[in-house]
């Protein structure tokens, strides 16, 4: 058992545990990678919805700028919030009715299908899995698979029940 847990710790070396340390990220390098991601996203949107990349380009450009600003905030603002949280907040802010340009932004991003934008990330995700991650999943065995499914069902259904209850109470 001691042996086994030791190797598990070694396997953990390349898990994305330090992913939340965004204070050191290189915003310039990331802006290049983001450009690649946005280009693939435009093509995904094109194939998936038939919307020409030229039509969807202004919307994608807005999203790109929002992402860069979000990355910059995560890097330079003195308190920590993950970049995805900053990106979300910026995106919300620029689409609230009454904010200058909000209607234009909403109209432009409407040309982008949200699900098509997630497809590239999942493709990278499948390719990024390391031998260790497969090894951990295999080692953990069938019990963990059952528990993991219960965890996902429990997390989701717990929220659904609470949310439904309070939505009813609020009516």
């Amino acid at each position: 058992m001691a042996n086994q847990t030791n190797t598990t710790a070694n396997l953990a070396d390349d898990l994305p545990l330090n992913a939340e340390d965004e204070r050191k990220i290189d915003v310039v390098k990331h802006s290049g990678l983001l450009l690649i991601a946005c280009a693939i996203g435009l093509i995904a949107n094109w194939v998936g919805t038939g919307t020409s990349p030229l039509v969807a380009l202004p919307g994608m450009a807005v999203l790109y700028v929002a992402c860069i600003i979000g990355l910059g905030f995560a890097r330079f603002v003195p308190f920590y919030l993950p970049s995805v949280a900053w990106v979300s907040l910026i995106a919300i802010l620029i689409t609230i009715p009454g904010v200058p340009g909000a209607a234009w932004v909403s109209e432009q991003v409407e040309h982008l299908n949200f699900l098509a934008l997630a497809t590239p990330a999942l493709a990278y995700g499948g390719l990024a899995l390391t031998a260790s991650e497969f090894a951990i999943a295999r080692r953990s065995g069938w019990k963990i698979v059952i528990v993991a499914i219960c965890v996902m069902i429990g997390t989701y259904m717990g929220s659904v029940v609470v949310a439904d209850l309070f939505l009813r109470l609020g009516q």
């Binding site: 990106v87 995106a91 919300i92 590239p120 990330a121 990278y124 990024a128």
Partner: peptide, 26 residues
Amino acid sequence: AVKLSGAMITVAIMPFIAKFGTTVGP
């Protein structure tokens, strides 16, 4: 390249998250 792929997940999910955010404002 596999390592880069790992870094690309967080980068590639950002436009998706941004698009998601834009649905909240309206």
